[in-house]
Design a protein around this nucleic acid. Structure first.
Lengths: 171, 171
DNA sequence: GGGAGATAATTAACATGTTAAGTGAATTCG
DNA sequence: CGAATTCACTTAACATGTTAATTATCTCCC
């Protein structure tokens, strides 16, 4: 009997209320599974270097921008403040990043990647790039661009919805 | 020979204030942000009913298939075993699901949605469907189908990669 | 029958997601 | 000035993600 990986409830006779959308085909599930399929490619390589996906995101972000405030880094790496606080604490303990409070504003702290952090990145980047290249090859470079374009459009068209509780940023 | 859109540290000795757009446009980030944009729409409604996204996934899955083993449910709701174990424990404590060990195999437990669970689902479904409809309206129904088609293809073309540590499921 | 292995589910341990509350510093405005 | 407010960041509390180890059961095969 072959497994039916994409048909969880084809012949479910009971519990029928409103025939809600087959949730395995819902947009959130599609996005979740696609992302998981992608991350599954990267995780082993990162793990070999003792890095999680989020830690890697932070190092990459820092390597590109030299130094950044925590809030800016959170936006760049797409992490929430509390997660970032914890991760920065751990990365600092591992001497992969450095922090110093800003002189002008004692509340802010400037975060930067350390020499060790740069070295670690250099050791991970090749395999990371190779994996990304393989994904691109399998899916198709043109299609990949197209997909990312659609994802960006989705993000944009939904961002306007939750803009009600934000200040209209006119000066 | 095209330039790679993801080039975290090609030769940046002291990167300036370049905001590193390439990193923010990587496929994992695009997927993450798109999914977050979508889930941001749903979370408040679910939260009003005291449900998390994962709990809602489980209830939806159960409502469609009547009863399922834990492993099957994990596959359907796309959750890992440990997460599912914890969530089932909590949902059972809230009397939203029911469990009974299978007679034929004492290791397996059959999980089903309870009457209360069905009632809760009925109270959440309308707003959930309304939100989904609004997303569809904003993004475009045709485009949405197209996006999900591409996500599915991405999943498929990457699934074959990590099939080396799996058994070829037909002898 | 019984022991070696396989399997289903849980538990453990650590890391992150998510929301709320807390802390200390800066800004506003009386 | 100085109290109220805002701001940047952290901590707290709980839920889930992730991998490894455990437990209990079942299957196979001698």
């Amino acid at each position: 009997m072959a497994k039916r990986p994409t048909d969880p409830n084809a012949s479910a006779p009971a519990a029928r209320q409103v025939p809600m959308r087959d949730f395995s085909r819902s947009l959130p599930m599609s996005l979740l599974r696609a992302r998981e399929a992608v991350m599954r490619q990267f995780r082993p390589a990162l793990r070999e270097h003792g890095l999680t996906e989020q830690q890697w995101r932070i190092l990459r972000a820092l390597a590109a921008i030299e130094a950044a405030e925590v809030t800016e880094l959170a936006r760049t790496a797409f992490l929430l403040g509390p997660s970032l606080s914890r991760i920065l604490r751990d990365l600092e303990a591992r001497n992969l990043i450095e922090r110093k409070t800003a002189k002008a504003d004692q509340r802010r702290s400037m975060v930067s990647i350390s020499k060790e952090g740069v070295k670690l990145m250099a050791s991970v980047a090749p395999s990371s790039e190779a994996i990304y290249a393989e994904i691109t090859r399998r899916f198709g470079a043109r299609k990949l661009v197209e997909l990312q374009e659609m994802l960006g459009q989705l993000e944009v068209c939904l961002a306007s919805v939750d803009a009600r509780d934000e200040i209209t940023d006119d000066a």
